[in-house]
Simulated assay, not measured.
Amino acid sequence: MRKLTYFAASTLDGFIAGPDGADPTGPNGFWPIPADYIEHLVAEYPEALPGPARQALGVTAEGTHFDTVLEGRRSYEIGLAAGITDAFPHLRHLVFSRTLTESPDPAVRVVAEDPTAVVRALKKEEGKDIWLIGGAELAGALYAEIDTLVLKVAPLTIGNGIPLFSRNAAFDPSSWTLTDHTVLKSGALFLTYARTRDAA
């Protein structure tokens, strides 16, 4: 069965963006993007690079991890504000929103249904795993469905901001097993955890 992977960048203190929710890697952003970080993404997760970045870097690799990307409306609108209607044209792209009445791009499917039901149906399909890019609200809603966490941890603290999971996520302590890790010279970490599920 396919797995849902929350593959997200996080600060050392557990935030994925600043308090305003703007793109922290944008022109006025505060998030460091060292060369070895990009090189690792190109080598290991080429499908996680947005289309414009793939084009600029000459990346054509299909990728081995994901064939579908899920994101919430606020996360999606960061791309829209930059004039990008589909940041991941090489993946099946679903945006969860109850307020978007139609998709700005024919290749992007806007989904108003319950995220949990949609993800459970996607998991039953054949294919690669499913990438949950964020944001925190969608990650919170799908907290119980996440099978794998891949955290791209920057050597950075910001004190306050948008957390990895929204404050509305259910209180449900879960154990995770570290299955892989990469430490880059720049200080960034790629940490992969599998959820420890009871056999019952």
Results as ranks from 00 to 15, higher is better:
residue 126 E to Y: 09
residue 95 V to S: 01
residue 30 F to N: 04
residue 56 A to H: 15
residue 61 A to N: 06
residue 69 V to A: 05
residue 165 F to C: 02
residue 156 L to V: 13
residue 149 L to A: 07
residue 64 T to F: 05
residue 89 P to F: 12
residue 30 F to G: 00
residue 85 T to I: 03
residue 152 K to V: 14
residue 53 A to K: 11
residue 141 A to Y: 03
residue 162 I to Q: 14
residue 90 H to M: 11
residue 119 V to K: 09
residue 77 E to K: 05
residue 127 G to S: 07
residue 57 L to E: 09
residue 31 W to K: 07
residue 144 A to H: 12
residue 135 G to W: 12
residue 45 Y to T: 06
residue 100 L to S: 02
residue 139 A to Y: 10
residue 37 Y to T: 02
residue 47 E to C: 03
residue 117 A to D: 14
residue 51 G to H: 10
residue 42 V to L: 05
residue 131 W to A: 03
residue 70 L to S: 01
residue 156 L to S: 01
residue 54 R to N: 06
residue 145 E to K: 02
residue 76 Y to P: 07
residue 51 G to F: 11
residue 88 F to H: 12
residue 155 P to R: 06
residue 140 G to P: 02
residue 157 T to W: 08
residue 57 L to T: 08
residue 166 S to P: 01
residue 92 R to D: 13
residue 156 L to K: 04
residue 99 T to H: 13
residue 140 G to H: 08
residue 48 A to K: 15
residue 135 G to Y: 08
residue 140 G to C: 04
residue 67 D to C: 09
residue 157 T to H: 04
residue 66 F to Q: 02
residue 106 P to G: 07
residue 121 A to Y: 12
residue 160 N to L: 10
residue 62 E to V: 13
residue 150 V to H: 03
residue 60 T to A: 15
residue 55 Q to P: 02
residue 68 T to W: 05
residue 47 E to S: 08
residue 108 V to H: 01
residue 77 E to A: 06
residue 90 H to I: 13
residue 78 I to K: 10
residue 126 E to G: 11
residue 39 E to R: 13
residue 127 G to D: 09
residue 69 V to K: 00
residue 37 Y to R: 07
residue 153 V to Y: 04
residue 133 I to L: 14
residue 169 A to E: 11
residue 121 A to R: 15
residue 170 A to R: 11
residue 82 A to Q: 12
residue 95 V to I: 03
residue 114 D to H: 04
residue 146 I to N: 01
residue 48 A to R: 15
residue 103 S to H: 12
residue 160 N to T: 14
residue 170 A to W: 11
residue 103 S to I: 09
residue 172 D to G: 06
residue 83 G to K: 00
residue 30 F to V: 09
residue 80 L to Y: 08
residue 153 V to L: 11
residue 108 V to Y: 05
residue 77 E to H: 07
residue 162 I to Y: 09
residue 168 N to Y: 04
residue 148 T to M: 07
residue 67 D to Q: 06
residue 115 P to G: 03
residue 108 V to A: 05
residue 43 A to I: 05
residue 53 A to W: 14
residue 55 Q to K: 15
residue 131 W to M: 04
residue 71 E to T: 09
residue 146 I to A: 00
residue 136 A to V: 10
residue 50 P to T: 13
residue 167 R to V: 05
residue 87 A to F: 07
residue 132 L to T: 12
residue 80 L to A: 09
residue 145 E to S: 01
residue 54 R to P: 03
residue 30 F to K: 01
residue 70 L to D: 00
residue 48 A to P: 08
residue 47 E to P: 06
residue 135 G to R: 09
residue 71 E to D: 08
residue 128 K to V: 05
residue 56 A to G: 11
residue 161 G to L: 07
residue 146 I to Y: 01
residue 113 E to S: 09
residue 92 R to H: 08
residue 62 E to D: 12
residue 133 I to M: 14
residue 69 V to C: 02
residue 64 T to S: 13
residue 137 E to Q: 13
residue 74 R to D: 15
residue 29 G to E: 06
residue 78 I to S: 05
residue 126 E to M: 10
residue 128 K to L: 13
residue 105 D to S: 15
residue 45 Y to E: 03
residue 73 R to Q: 14
residue 102 E to Y: 03
residue 70 L to H: 00
residue 72 G to S: 03
residue 171 F to A: 14
residue 151 L to S: 00
residue 110 V to M: 10
residue 133 I to S: 07
residue 122 L to K: 06
